[in-house]
Structures are given as structure tokens and as C-alpha cells.
């Protein structure tokens, strides 16, 4: 079992390690922010700011 784990770790390329670190890092950053009651990545606010005016131009009020 130990050998299998060691082999799997050794087989990971640098690129894989970087992507995995980014995915874990962003997930942890987001969940810690959410649990702390802050918006860690306010994508909804940004999207509303971008598309809200376009929507109102197209359809009014």
C-alpha cells in the first residue's frame, strides 16, 4: 500500500502538482471566506455590474 502511494506521488508531474495546489488553494480560500461570513470572490456582484446595465438598456426598468 505504501509503495503504491509512493509511486503515485512520484508519478505526479510538476504541472499536475501546480494545478492541484491551485484547485485546493482556491477551494480552501473560498470556503474559509464563506464560513467567516465574507464574500471571498464576489463574482455575482461583478456580473450584475457588467450585465445589469445591458439588461436595463434592452428591456428597461
Amino acid at each position: 500500500m505504501q509503495d503504491w502511494k509512493t509511486t503515485m506521488k512520484a508519478n505526479k508531474t510538476t504541472r499536475e502538482k501546480i494545478v492541484l495546489a491551485i484547485v485546493w488553494g482556491f477551494s480552501l480560500y473560498y470556503i474559509i471566506g464563506y464560513l467567516a461570513g465574507i464574500d471571498p470572490f464576489p463574482i455575482t456582484v461583478w456580473l450584475k455590474a457588467i450585465y445589469g446595465p445591458i439588461y436595463h438598456t434592452l428591456f428597461g426598468g
Binding site: T13, R15, V19, W24, F26, S27, Y30, P40
Partner: peptide
């Protein structure tokens, strides 16, 4: 997509962090 970006053979290693992220986003976005 993540598998393609990382050039991995499998995406299994990314399932848990992404599932955690999706759960937090589903509550945090709105």
C-alpha cells in the same frame, strides 16, 4: 477541463476540492 489543463491521466484527485468549492459557492453566491 482541469484534467486537460494539468495534463493528468485522471481527474480523481480534483473531485474532492471541487465538490467542496461547489458546496461553498452554492451557498455563497446568493
Amino acid at each position: 477541463g482541469i484534467k486537460h489543463l494539468s495534463k493528468s491521466k485522471t481527474f480523481r484527485g480534483y473531485i474532492v476540492p471541487c465538490a467542496i468549492l461547489v458546496w461553498a459557492m452554492s451557498n455563497g453566491l446568493h
